[in-house]
Design a binder for these strands. Structure first.
Lengths: 337, 337
DNA sequence: ATAGGTTGTCGAAGCGCTTCGATACCTATT
DNA sequence: AATAGGTATCGAAGCGCTTCGACAACCTAT
């Protein structure tokens, strides 16, 4: 294991000089810099992370807390996690993966031990139990998702309210009067996950404004649950011509069932999905959808956190504007007989 | 920030005593231990990770390298990653998330900086470019997946060869003579990912032994690709009565297409999937399947790595025996007219 | 010619912890 | 009674780095 001191000796300078070459915090003559850099290369030197952390009180690590649940939105979570890791590297940070398992204790452990310089929390609930701790330790942090009280917190999320509104608008504009919403699993609502409720909020208020009728039903993933939910919807509102789905694992079952019942998409029923683009383009019908911008969310989260490290951060809520991509699954409402 | 020294002072003992209470490496009287533990609680002390790493040359961190690609098997990857993180915690380790982005350099960086005590590599290719480096730095490591040359390496994986064999056996036992295999995306084979080739190997040799005919076609995920692939298969082998799928994102499209063509599952066609249980149970037909034991793989990987840290590790290849669960998608081959 | 700035380098202190003797006391064993 | 072996504790060194103050060497402006 090569140390700073060995590099210094090899280059014929003092240890501090090598350190300054590495950090650039003091000016170094071109000559010396080159000699040092050459020694570093020749000896294959890598600074020791622990020593660095100890001396500088900076670990260059960002903790990422992902939910333990694998019951929803897994690909999106994964994409966000990877986006976070990638973005973090471009700023010189590594990412520590914490699962929800430990719960709030993880916050305490990380903050207390100086393991990470800050943390990013995913899957934030409206009244998340980690938040009081986060506020107490003044650990720099960014949330992906929106809690009920965002006071003193920095949050990044898709604007799900606007997303809901956008979906309704798109269908209403095409003449749909009766719209059904197939939502997340009931458990998601029970847990008071913010995004689900906000989407619903956007859906409801916009449909009220536009004077269209809206029916919302939570739905577990999978074929069987979907069959029950769809039957119930069509029973209650036989005139439904527009469907909005917000549950990745309900998308394909829904399309299969519609097909099976002889309802053509988009001629008889229009379908709008809120899901990653990959799902929308790979489904059996190319779906008109609002994408979940996982990449962008991950990148934003990292950038805001790094900004905080550098003292230029501000507590703010960043809502990413939704974008609706029209594909083949929506069209004008069929004229009533 | 509370330090060891402060705890020591508060408890009226020396710093080293506190350290020994924490590590248990020397005997401490019950009395002293309790006093120290009380001080620790009262002051809310957390050992500083950096200092600890520096002094002990142990970071208590495991690096996990996940593939950057999100084109395949994402939920499985995620499940493994979470299983690794969870298992690591039970052994007192945290997990550092590295993306494939950096490639082999990440291995060098982590090994050189002492950031992690060892690493777990996922999505290992047959001739993986990270392996030479791994062998050069004697960084403790475990691979999830199997490279061509496992010499000097510890690997954990599902026994995909046995998996292939098991699928063929199950179908052959029910009288199926013409079996089609819908494989992973062509890109996966081009990349020479071990598991895909090993599955194929198992499928082929067992079908040869059992005297059944086998047709293998790679297939991208999604509906359109599946339609093309299925049409081609049924064109070449109209008598196909058994289908084995090894591509999560082809499962639902396949079932939809079969339904659409009036082929009943399992009366006309039997389908066996190689996929996580969740996919098998949530599909529109409850699928007979061989599960990918993500949890188990993650746990095994961690345990072997920790064993290496403690000097009781051995280089070995752990192949997890596949288990086939019979659900509703397979049955006796239809009798030929 | 001199005061005042820059620039480039060094030495030393110290970050918070682990760990290796050393020491002091106590209990068995001869 | 003298010795050996345990047990419980302390002090000090040192892990590899960052960073501060000092200082020499050189500019520039008066």
């Amino acid at each position: 294991m090569v140390t700073l001191a060995e590099v210094a000796q090899h280059a014929g300078v003092s240890a501090s000089t090598v350190s300054y070459v590495l950090s650039g915090k003091r000016s170094i003559s071109a000559n010396t810099r080159q000699r040092v850099e050459r020694s570093i290369r020749e000896l294959g030197y890598h600074p020791n992370a622990g020593a660095r952390a100890l001396a500088s009180s900076k670990s260059n690590i960002i903790a990422l807390m992902v939910p333990l649940r694998t019951d929803m939105y897994v690909p999106v979570m994964m994409e966000i996690a990877i986006a976070v890791a990638t973005a973090a590297r471009t700023h010189g940070y590594d990412v520590l993966l914490l699962t929800g398992e430990e719960g709030p204790d993880a916050v305490r452990r990380v903050a207390g031990s100086g393991l990470a310089d800050g943390m990013i929390l995913m899957d934030v609930e409206l009244d998340d139990e980690r938040l009081p701790l986060l506020r107490a330790t003044d650990q720099p942090s960014v949330l992906i998702g929106l809690p009920a009280d965002t006071n003193g917190l920095t949050c990044v999320d898709l604007d799900f309210r606007a997303t809901g509104a956008l979906c309704v608008e798109h269908l209403a504009k095409q003449g749909h009067q009766d719209i059904a919403v197939i939502g997340e699993a009931p458990a998601v609502y029970e847990r008071h996950t913010g995004f689900a409720e906000r989407t619903l909020d956007g859906l409801r208020s916009r449909s009220r404004e536009l004077g269209v009728r809206l029916l919302h039903r939570p739905c577990d993933g999978g074929y069987d649950a979907m069959a029950v939910t769809l039957a119930r919807i069509l029973d209650e509102r036989p005139g439904t011509t527009g469907i909005i789905v917000q549950n990745e694992s309900a998308v394909e079952p829904l399309l299969a069932l519609l097909r099976q019942q002889g309802r053509a998409v988009p001629e008889d029923v229009s379908v709008v999905a809120i899901c990653p683009d990959q799902v929308a383009t790979q489904a059996s019908v190319r779906l008109t959808s609002v994408a979940i911008p996982a990449q962008e969310m991950g990148r934003h989260a990292v950038e805001h956190l790094v900004a905080k490290f550098e003292g230029r951060g501000s507590d703010e809520v960043v809502l990413i504007a939704p974008e609706l991509t029209v594909r083949g699954s929506t069209g004008p409402a069929p004229t009533r007989p």
